[in-house]
Nucleic acid binder design. Structure first.
Lengths: 229, 229
DNA sequence: ATTACTTAGTGTAGAAAATACACACTATAT
DNA sequence: ATATAGTGTGTATTTTCTACACTAAGTAAT
């Protein structure tokens, strides 16, 4: 019911919580601000939604501009709009999260003029964040904790080919608790969305593990059925 | 990362999907528009977010203005912002849902000048909706289907005192499938969030059922534990 | 070649939860 | 008293969850 379109001084932006996994730790991408307000503070990367782009497009563009990445699973999860959240005016922001595999082949493109630097920081030791970004991050983590139980998002954090131990490691980091190896394997294999490859892990100084791949086709067939961890 | 605050011609609104239950059917509140665009079409009630209110406050105000109701469980669930969604300009809308018990004591306040009429229409026979409101509604229904499995939202659709059969009826309507009576009762009682009253249903021409009440205190104690249907 | 080391990979028994299923009870209306 | 309509309950079976420990395989060092 939007009858009238008054001219309002409000700004609509998107902030991204980019979770990254380097094989060891969960990290998020933060930017060190170079301008007031919150000069020298760390903040979530974000930007203003353009006039002719959809929200998802806008989020993809922002992610691309900040990281050079495309084709990443990304989803909006909450809008933050308290009148006082931005000291210079009314800014309503829509938060998106993305899950990204770090390291490996291509590195992230350096990030532009917005900031002194951009860096992947481990979530176990985050600095104080600008604006209400701590709140945005907290809600984002909560969201992926829930979602990893029901949706195949863990694979976004891993290379295309991965071992079950690596997969378990991702679940443990996101959920913040240890899982039983045998039960984990039993369950994850029983979903039937993993394809066991004829390949083994390489470059390790111990017994090499079998590699698996997430099978999108099989997952698509399951649709409707709920996966549950 | 919102450095600059340009002046943008975008409007930010909230649309509400108000689910109502009258003891028999699930309904949603719709408004028949009295102005172009989409004159004479049915639409979701909504309004523009004020400059000094938070999003939740705004949603509560809008709900109050349209229905006279206060203190209703309400939650944002998705932002819709395709550039073409409003023919007269860029309107980004944040969708909220609310669950409301219909009928009974106090009736809804009549709805203002926005519309020719407001009406509760059964979700089994909805008219074509203005704008992208069908999409907003669909997503809302999907959302409460998920949420009713994990959160105690069903009680918002029922009077304070209700029978287990009524509760089951709500679950069946929202989930869109029949449930087994014995198993339903076993499970819902096992959560320990219902208080059995010493009262019985009145005014029925058959054996009167025991009344129950949702016990918020007990539910609060459970926090962390997941309820699952 | 042997050994030490490190991680991969596997099975089972018991507990708990989910499911399927049918009939007797109670209040009211006639 | 009888018909009616919804209430309220128990159990056996299947499925899923949990807890738990050792052998196999490959690498590295000697």
């Amino acid at each position: 019911m939007e009858q009238i379109l008054p001219h309002l001084d409000s700004v609509f932006s998107i902030d991204c919580v980019l979770f990254g996994f380097d094989g060891k730790e969960l990290k998020i991408l933060l930017i060190e601000r170079n301008e007031e307000p919150f000069k020298d503070w760390w903040a979530l990367p974000g930007n203003i939604v353009g006039p002719d782009e959809s929200l998802d497009q806008s989020a993809s563009r922002i992610l691309y501009e900040l990281t050079g990445l495309r084709g990443i699973y990304m989803e909006q999860y909450y809008a933050f709009g308290d009148p006082g959240r931005h000291p210079q005016g009314r800014v309503i922001t829509l938060a998106y999260y993305a899950l990204i595999r770090l390291g490996g082949d291509k590195d992230l493109r350096p990030v532009s003029n917005y900031a002194k630097q951009a860096n992947w920081l481990p979530i176990t030791a985050l600095p104080k964040l600008a604006f209400d970004h701590q709140k945005i991050y907290d809600k984002g983590l909560e969201k992926i904790k829930r979602r990893i139980k029901h949706q195949p998002i863990a694979f976004e954090l891993l290379p295309e080919k991965f071992t079950l131990t690596q997969l378990q490691h991702v679940y443990e980091l996101v959920l913040g608790k240890k899982l039983d190896k045998r039960n984990f394997r039993k369950k994850i294999v029983s979903f039937g969305v993993l394809k066991e490859l004829d390949e083994k892990q390489k470059g390790v100084s111990y017994r090499a593990a079998t590699l698996y791949r997430f099978d999108k086709r099989k997952y698509a067939k399951l649709f409707g059925k709920e996966i549950s961890f």
